[in-house]
Simulated scan of single mutants.
Amino acid sequence: MTTPALLTVDRLRSGYGPIDVLHDISLTVAQGEIVALIGANGAGKTTTLMSLSGLVKARGGRVMFDGHDLTTVPAHQIVRLGLAQSPEGRKIFPRLSVLENLEMGAFTRSDPDGVAADIEKAFTMFPILRERKAQAGGLLSGGQQQMLAIARALMARPKLLLLDEPSLGLAPQIVVQIFGVIKELNNQGVSVLLVEQNARMALKVAHRGYVLETGRVTCEDRADKLLNDPRIRAAYLGE
């Protein structure tokens, strides 16, 4: 029995100013899936996530999420519907403390007891954040800021988590830790759409993958098949 799609993107067009970056992108994420979106720099991966989040307006096509058409929904309402993003470059609030950053991630919620419980979960998932909870976010290391960005997105209790380049600029041991957390979140029921320059790591953790080239999906398959596809290995896995 096929798991129903949580997210369905149908012929999405999007871009900036006069330039179209995405050309009729179509993809799906099923409930409980990790889906990787891989491609070269400039392929349109970040624009795809920004368009799903409502931060870049769609110019055509349709985005259906959990029964809702997101095409004309404001970004803050999209978060309320259960879709949250951890952006490229982390974009934490540098002058706010770790704790305040987490509280900002819960801005759509009105359940203080639940928010407190989720902050405790974040501190359990990333113990270093508990140690640094009173420290300004801008004083954290790159890896710690990435942990905070993911934890902040989780404070919205998303059904689908969008992760944009979570390993960018991080030491290898931190990358392993971050990807371990992604797998654990998925085991807890969170679906994930993962944009990641480290295509090998992304496909190892994902169930399925899409290849994006100059704003178009050129390949889609199970992650293990993409990992073993000679064309993908040559183009994106450094072989």
Rank of each mutant, 00 (worst) to 15 (best):
T214H: 11
L22R: 00
V21F: 02
R62E: 15
G114F: 04
R90I: 05
N187Y: 00
T218A: 04
Q31F: 06
I128S: 13
P127M: 03
S14L: 04
L154C: 05
A199S: 13
H23I: 02
V181F: 04
G67A: 10
V63I: 15
K121P: 02
I92M: 04
D111A: 08
V35L: 07
N198E: 10
S26T: 15
V190A: 05
A202G: 10
G142W: 06
G39M: 07
T2M: 12
N41Y: 11
P172C: 10
D113M: 09
V56K: 11
L163Y: 03
D224L: 07
G15V: 08
A223R: 11
L140M: 13
R157D: 06
M125L: 14
Q144P: 01
P4R: 10
V192G: 05
K45A: 08
A202T: 12
V63L: 12
D221E: 14
S53V: 13
G32I: 07
R95T: 13
A30T: 10
P4F: 01
L237F: 13
I232K: 04
N187G: 12
I150K: 02
P87I: 02
R233Q: 15
A234T: 12
V190H: 03
L27Y: 05
G180Y: 03
G209K: 09
R59G: 09
V9H: 12
E184D: 09
D66L: 12
L81N: 07
Q188H: 14
P158S: 06
I19R: 02
T2Q: 13
R90T: 01
M155K: 01
F65P: 04
S86H: 00
L37E: 07
G209V: 11
R233K: 15
L154P: 01
D66N: 15
V211N: 02
G169K: 05
K204P: 00
R132V: 05
D164W: 03
R152N: 11
E131Y: 02
S97K: 03
G82K: 11
P87T: 06
K91Y: 05
A43R: 06
